[in-house]
Design a protein around this nucleic acid. Structure first.
Lengths: 164, 164
DNA sequence: TCCAGATGTTTTAAGTCTAAAATGTTTAGG
DNA sequence: CCTAAACATTTTAGACTTAAAACATCTGGA
């Protein structure tokens, strides 16, 4: 028996259990790894994950970034960045100054201390990641990269659709 | 030129850039999707993601769960669960009682109201997930499930190794 | 029986996070 | 030039989160 077009048009209670399971597994993986990285950063360097992430963004931008840039890159709210930056300026890891061409804009960058400390943490961090993903073959990694790229694209389109 | 065993024993600065990129992509995907779900839950049902997640755990356990169980399943700290449960009991979605056989233990379960509201949210939630993962073929989903299972196993072993 | 350790939960202190409102600054159109 | 809209950031209020300490209860030997 086949479905005619009218039947198709009705919103059938389709089964999306597989996608749901996929989402839960994706979330579990990320939570597990994120927790492990968080633990190791705390244990080894007494630093929090958000601070490490912020410093990682700045390490890639020698000329500094605006708070908005950081906010977009890290996918967190503006207000969140304000507080995070404040604490890292306080501890001497970041330098913050008002842009000379636009007084609304704050430009932040790593201080010498901040960069030195980040580089040390980043080197070790990379070995942790290698350890955590150690069972995956090169092919697994390539395949995951491809499928996650596709997932990201699909999710971005869904976000876009909702915002219209 | 080949490396002799002594050279191999030294910790060569191996390149794990691919694994690092994989981790960042995994994190981006999860953050993106999590943010979208969070937005929709707030917009549509005025509920937070942690509350929804907690209710999802309880929906699967008609006889209730202990706080420890919930904490392990959700992979969050004990103290976190205490506060989350408190607010959901307050709003009438959860029922909390001390175990009759072990007075240390708190057993929580969904109230009638909690279950009804959760079921409504869950039905819609499933369609959001289907939308978000909409570009993936059945094969993509299967393949991602397989690779993420492998990733989870690899990460769990790394966690285990560190805790020894 | 007693009590030392194990287990389950709560509390505490500090940090992270969001959405929304408020503040300050720039830009473009009239 | 003026001013409304756009933009960048900060502030606010409340929720979530963790690690560690404190508290309560249970359990298994001596």
């Amino acid at each position: 028996m086949t479905l005619d077009s009218e039947t198709k048009a009705v919103e059938l209670p389709e089964d999306h259990a597989e996608e749901l399971r996929l989402w839960l597994r994706l979330l579990t993986c990320t939570t597990l790894i994120e927790g492990e990285i968080r633990s190791r950063l705390r244990e080894r360097f007494d630093v929090t994950l958000p601070r490490f992430d912020l410093m990682a963004q700045l390490d890639k931008a020698p000329d500094g970034m605006t708070l908005s840039d950081v906010s977009k890159r890290m996918m967190v709210s503006n207000g969140n960045v304000t507080g995070l930056v404040e604490r890292l300026v306080e501890s001497g890891h970041l330098d913050r100054r008002t842009s000379e061409t636009d007084r609304r804009v704050q430009v932040i960058r790593l201080t010498k201390l901040g960069r030195a400390e980040f580089r040390k943490m980043a080197a070790e961090h990379e070995t942790w990641i290698a350890d955590i993903f150690g069972d995956l073959t090169e092919k697994d990694v390539r395949e995951l990269m491809r499928l996650l790229a596709k997932t990201k694209g699909s999710a971005q389109k869904a976000v876009q659709r909702r915002q219209d």
